[in-house]
């Protein structure tokens, strides 16, 4: 039995992760590991990077093809997709955010890991609505690239 089946928290071992080079370009990380009947991410991708064998399969992102646009971040019904880009020692993380108040660009926020534990501060770089979901891009230290998955405004 995997830990996430017991406590809900995914670990990096559960995920397919991009290479350093792919991260420098900025790619979508699909934190969707179970076979559930759902495929909007496939339809949302403008470059056909995300594929699925059938509607119940786990989606796979072709990191080389992915352009990190973040459309899938806003359209994933499970809020399970994050675009991570690393540049000059900083990581920018694009995440779906369904709470009020919506942060504003330039705001400093607490950043949280997959356990909801605060693990530092981040700077809000971009706030957009994709589909009907707010998508926030937050900049953090490069070290936190694979940990930060939520913010507290």
């Amino acid at each position: 039995m995997k830990d996430y089946e017991k406590n809900g928290v995914l670990s990096l071992e559960d995920l397919r992760l991009p290479s350093k080079k792919q991260l420098e370009k900025g790619v979508a990380i699909l934190e969707c590991v179970q076979e559930i009947p759902c495929n909007p991410c496939v339809d949302s991708c403008p470059v056909n990077a995300i594929s699925m064998k059938d509607i119940n399969a786990v989606p796979v992102n072709d990191f080389d093809r992915c352009i990190g646009c973040g459309k899938c971040v806003g359209l994933c019904p499970g809020l399970a997709i994050f675009v991570v880009k690393i540049k000059d020692g900083k990581a920018s993380i694009m995440l779906p955010y369904e709470f009020l108040p919506v942060p504003i660009v330039g705001e400093k926020v607490h950043v949280l890991d997959r356990n909801g534990k605060a693990c530092g501060n981040g700077l809000v770089k971009r706030v957009v609505k994709i589909g009907k979901t707010m998508v926030v891009t937050v900049e953090v230290d490069e070290k936190l690239a694979m940990d930060v998955r939520n913010i507290r405004v």
């Binding site: 996430y4 089946e5 809900g8 928290v9 934190e31 179970q34 559930i36 499970g78 809020l79 997959r114």
Partner: peptide, 10 residues
């Protein structure tokens, strides 16, 4: 679904 659980956890 884990995606629902993960939303809560974070």
């Amino acid at each position: 679904y884990n995606v629902h659980a993960a939303k809560l956890c974070r």
